[in-house]
Amino acid sequence: MARPSEYSAEFRSDAIALWRASAGGRTFRDVAADLNVNPETLRTWVRDADGSAAAAGASQATGAELARLWAENARLARAEKEWQLEREILRRAAAYFAREMK
Results as ranks from 00 to 15, higher is better:
Met1Gln: 01
Ala2Glu: 03
Ser5His: 01
Glu6Tyr: 00
Ser8Val: 04
Ser8Lys: 01
Ala15Glu: 07
Ala15Asn: 04
Ala17Ile: 02
Ala17His: 12
Ala21Phe: 02
Ala23Tyr: 05
Gly25Arg: 15
Gly25Val: 11
Arg29Lys: 15
Ala32Phe: 02
Ala32Arg: 03
Ala33Phe: 03
Asp34Val: 00
Asp34Gly: 02
Leu35Trp: 02
Glu40Asp: 08
Trp45Arg: 01
Val46Ala: 07
Asp48His: 15
Ala49His: 13
Ser52Ile: 11
Ala53Asn: 08
Ala54Gly: 10
Ala55Lys: 05
Ala58Ile: 07
Ala61Thr: 04
Thr62Gly: 01
Ala64Phe: 01
Ala64Thr: 02
Ala64Trp: 07
Leu66Thr: 03
Ala67Cys: 03
Ala67Pro: 01
Arg68Val: 05
Leu69Glu: 05
Glu72Val: 00
Glu72Ile: 00
Ala74Cys: 08
Arg75Cys: 08
Leu76Glu: 12
Ala77Asp: 05
Arg78Gln: 07
Arg78His: 06
Arg78Ser: 05
Arg78Glu: 09
Ala79Phe: 08
Lys81Met: 08
Glu82Ala: 03
Glu82Val: 07
Trp83Lys: 04
Gln84Glu: 15
Gln84Ala: 12
Leu85Met: 09
Arg87Leu: 15
Ala93Ser: 12
Ala93Gly: 05
Ala93Tyr: 00
Ala94Gln: 10
Ala94Arg: 15
Tyr96Leu: 15
Tyr96Gln: 10
Phe97Ser: 06
Arg99Tyr: 09
Glu100Leu: 10
Met101Val: 09
Lys102Pro: 00
